[in-house]
């Protein structure tokens, strides 16, 4: 069966005055109907750029320099801006970390929801309002009729993020891409929003790409995950398997360095020495090699490809 979404050898560059930098370097990903996929990695690894590239929202001077993106059998990476608008915010919705990227402070919630719907469908105001109400109920917003009349600033952070989710549901998308949707929220609220997203994926048979640096969240919400490092996917596969038995030494280090995973309180945490290289400074061979405890000569000359590591996990490491 063909996948709902496929990224083939995706490369994204930023054309800077000093030359191009490669932010995404040959990423392959697939997503099936109703599936939840986590995209993790540290700051600058390329998670957001990957997410944005799917809906062609990469900020200038970024552009897709190689590879293709296929959605429902169509190569959407070759779509014109106009044609892309039929997909973006319609069949594929995006939720940003900052709710104010989606919400306009000067309009009521109701106005914005109705407008979004009418931009994608020929629908009467009354019908649009009814759909808006239905979606607000789906995200468990108390007294939804009143919310339609309210302005974004009158709502708490958690409530605003629910509204965003309701907006992203308006057009019954096949995929939601959520970029750090709860990073700005407190844990108790974060847990509720994550529960909500998970519940909606099941009830609406919607696929979710969850971008986050929080491995805890990914391990609780997603079925499959991909770990990014310096613009590449270095490990991907079944989430449960990866968090229990990571294959790539980077993933291993990442999991062990979280307090409470393997180390008893008070003892030194496992730490990965050094830090992720900047994109202009990526070492030859495996980009992780200067920080890696398994490194051999080959790691500094040859770039490892993702290969089947068994148990539904793929990893890019010469030594594993």
């Amino acid at each position: 069966m063909p996948h709902l979404l496929e990224l083939h050898d995706l490369e994204v560059r930023f054309a800077l005055r000093t030359g191009d930098i490669i932010a995404i370097d040959g990423v392959d990903l697939t997503l099936d109907k109703g599936e939840t996929l986590g995209l993790v990695g540290e700051s600058g690894a390329g998670k957001s750029v990957t997410g944005f590239s799917i809906i062609n929202l990469i900020s200038k001077p970024g552009y897709i320099s190689k590879g293709k993106i296929i959605f429902n059998g169509d190569e959407i990476s070759s779509y014109s801006d106009e044609k892309m608008r039929e997909i973006r915010g319609n069949k594929i919705s995006m939720i940003f970390q900052d709710p104010m990227m989606t919400l306009n402070p000067v309009f009521t919630i109701g106005f914005q929801m109705i407008e979004t719907l009418q931009a994608h469908r020929k629908i009467s105001k009354a019908d649009a309002r009814n759909i808006a109400l239905e979606k607000l109920k789906k995200v468990h917003i108390p007294s939804p009729e009143q919310r339609l009349e309210q302005y974004p600033h009158e709502l708490s952070g958690g409530m605003r993020q629910r509204i965003i989710i309701a907006i992203s549901l308006l057009t019954d998308p096949a995929i939601i891409i959520a970029d750090e949707p709860t990073t700005a929220l407190d844990v108790t609220i974060q847990a509720e929003i994550m529960d909500l997203l998970q519940e909606l994926c099941e009830s609406e048979n919607m696929a979710l790409i969850l971008i986050t640096h929080d491995l805890g969240v990914v391990s609780q919400v997603t079925e499959r995950m991909a770990v990014m490092y310096a613009g590449k996917i270095i490990e991907c596969g079944l989430t449960d398997q990866i968090v229990k038995h990571p294959v790539h030494p980077y993933t291993e280090g990442l999991i062990k360095s979280i307090p409470g995973t393997v180390i008893t309180p008070g003892c030194d945490l496992v730490q990965i020495p050094g830090m992720m290289p900047t994109l202009t400074n990526i070492p030859p061979g495996c980009a992780f090699n200067p920080r890696c405890y398994l490194k051999e000569a080959i790691c500094t000359t040859k770039t490892p490809e993702l290969k089947d590591a068994g148990n539904g996990v793929w990893a890019a490491c010469h030594m594993r």
Binding site: A191, Q220, V243, I258
Partner: peptide
Amino acid sequence: LLSAIPVVGEKRAKQIKLKGEV
């Protein structure tokens, strides 16, 4: 608060939901 922390490698035990907002 404790029931809401996501722990790596553990499916979340039933989270204790709080009513309302802070």
